[in-house]
Each structure stands twice: as C-alpha cells, then as structure tokens.
Amino acid sequence: MTVYLLCFALFLVGVYGVIAKRDLIKIILSIGIMGYAANLFLILFAYKHGATFPILTGGKVSPMVDPLPQALVLTSIVIELGTTALLVALVVRLFQKYGTFDIAKIRRLRG
C-alpha cells in the first residue's frame, strides 16, 4: 500500500510538471517521469513475497514472480525510448522555427 502510494506520487510529480512548466524540455522530462512511474507500478503489482525471478535454473522449482507484466513492461520501456526520440525531434524542429523553448511564445500554433 505504501509503495503503491509513493509510486503514484511519483506519477503525480510528472503530471504537475506537464501542467505547470512552460519549458518544452521540462515537459519532455515530466512525460518521462510519468512513464517510469507507470512501468514501476506494473512491476510492483507483479511482486510476490519470497518468490524469485522467473528464470528456470534446473533443479527444484521455487515460487516465482509474475512473468506477464515483466514481459509487457520490457517492450513498453523500448517504446518509451522511441516516443522520447520523437518528442525530442519535434522540440528541436520547434526550436529551429521559433528560437525558443517557451510554450507561451510559440504563438503560431494557436488556432
């Protein structure tokens, strides 16, 4: 329970960053924080007391932690790298166009 709440607090730090920061780099970092918290929450959910990692080592079979969230988070981390690269590319282009990282000054995007 405590670790769940702390992990959720980490996610909310990311939400606060997205809402309150005007710097585009800080917003990218905040989205990264939210991704870390979501991945970590799924793995927290899979943990079992007294269990070992889900790799068969031969010999006796001991209780193991849940392999399904680990498999899905493994691909999710790689996807996160791809989306970070895409966001960075977008921000670099915006900087070339407008010369600033401040979202309040990028006026032409207003509809």
Binding site: G32, L40, I43, L44, L74
Partner: peptide
C-alpha cells in the same frame, strides 16, 4: 529517477527489466 527505477526492478526480481 531512471537509475532508481532500474534498482527497484532488481529488488522486485526482474533482472531483464
């Protein structure tokens, strides 16, 4: 934060992650 997540994965028995 990222390396803390990596360390937490080790505590949670997920070495691949």
């Amino acid at each position: 934060v990222g390396l803390g997540v990596s360390m937490s994965f080790l505590f949670l028995q997920a070495p691949d992650l």
